[in-house]
Design a protein around this nucleic acid. Structure first.
Lengths: 175, 175
DNA sequence: TGCATTTCTTAATCTAGATTAATGGAGATG
DNA sequence: CATCTCCATTAATCTAGATTAAGAAATGCA
């Protein structure tokens, strides 16, 4: 049984869909019950601030699930826009599949673990943003996601780190 | 039925305990299965970086639950130190009570919702840290937690915002 | 109550990273 | 193939917020 089946089971209405590079999978501002499992390819979620600037919240490569969970669970409009970086195969399923169907207790507990892990990684990211310099954050990024830098353009890495492409270029030049 | 009972049920080994101001409830670096429900008072969780600087991760006033969830679920040493700001009454319970006991499916789903909400607030915090100035973050903090500023010393608010007390003092002077 | 310690504020300097601008590639598109 | 647009880099300036320092206010403690 693969990872996806393990999570959402088999008897769901999940949709498999192919996207080209730079296609928007989900716009921000809509109320969405969708979650996106990356079967193949690479996607990103990002928010756009009042000044029109993009801030990448996270990347999703193979086997990752990307979703604006709060929007899902509490019917809030999404704050995140989701878009492909490479040609990708995405499995779109609803949060009901993930959590509120006739899931077994075992599955619910497994899902809770996934949520706890995500909370952990967000917690580390917040602490990192508060306590580390751009250079340190870049190095942590390289260690944490060693395969991404080859697939993601510099300017998106900069956006993920919360700095400008110029600043990242400088940092890279130094080391 | 109060909020706590609703979450952890009644038949648990939860411990009620009183703490004085500035007492450490949990040290960082230990593997802990504990979560802390604030019945009365005010606590904070924070990490200490290599330079010995404290960074407040979150505050917990009445009815909040504070825990290093990833440590709980995955047996990692905690990254967070938890300490009282005021004299407090804390209910200490284990993550097993929260999630892995003979919980009903209903309860597990409710817990998932709590986790999703926490993910949402962390997500907003990350985006905020990347896209807003210190002044904007302070204003958002005031709007989001209107009651805290009266109870929390300035330097801790600064630490939560990721700036120095001097910078916060300047911001406050301006507006 | 009085002294000591911590907290808050103000001001002077310093610096990481933003902004602006200009250049040379690299892909896309006709 | 030539042109166009986007991307990465470098350099010059600018600025938010850090650091340092010192005084004032608040708080704790004997």
């Amino acid at each position: 049984m693969d990872f996806l089946t393990e999570i959402i089971g088999t008897d769901t209405k999940a949709i498999h869909k192919k996207f080209k590079k730079k296609e928007i999978i989900q716009k921000q501002g809509v109320v969405s019950k969708n979650a996106f499992y990356v079967k193949k390819g690479l996607i990103r979620s990002y928010s756009i601030d009042e000044k029109g600037k993009e801030h990448i919240f996270m990347f999703g490569a193979e086997d990752w699930i990307i979703a604006d969970l709060e929007s899902n669970v509490f019917n809030k409009p999404t704050e995140l826009c989701i878009e492909t970086i490479e040609d990708s195969e995405i499995v779109i399923f609803t949060i009901d599949d993930f959590n509120y169907a006739e899931s077994s207790k075992e599955k619910l507990q497994k899902n809770s673990k996934l949520l706890a892990r995500r909370i952990g990684s967000l917690q580390r990211r917040v602490i990192q943003l508060m306590s580390s310099s751009a250079k340190e954050r870049y190095q942590i990024f390289l260690e944490t996601y060693p395969l991404l830098p080859n697939r993601v353009p510099q300017k998106m890495i900069a956006s993920y780190l919360g700095i400008t492409p110029e600043a990242l270029s400088k940092i890279r030049g130094e080391s």
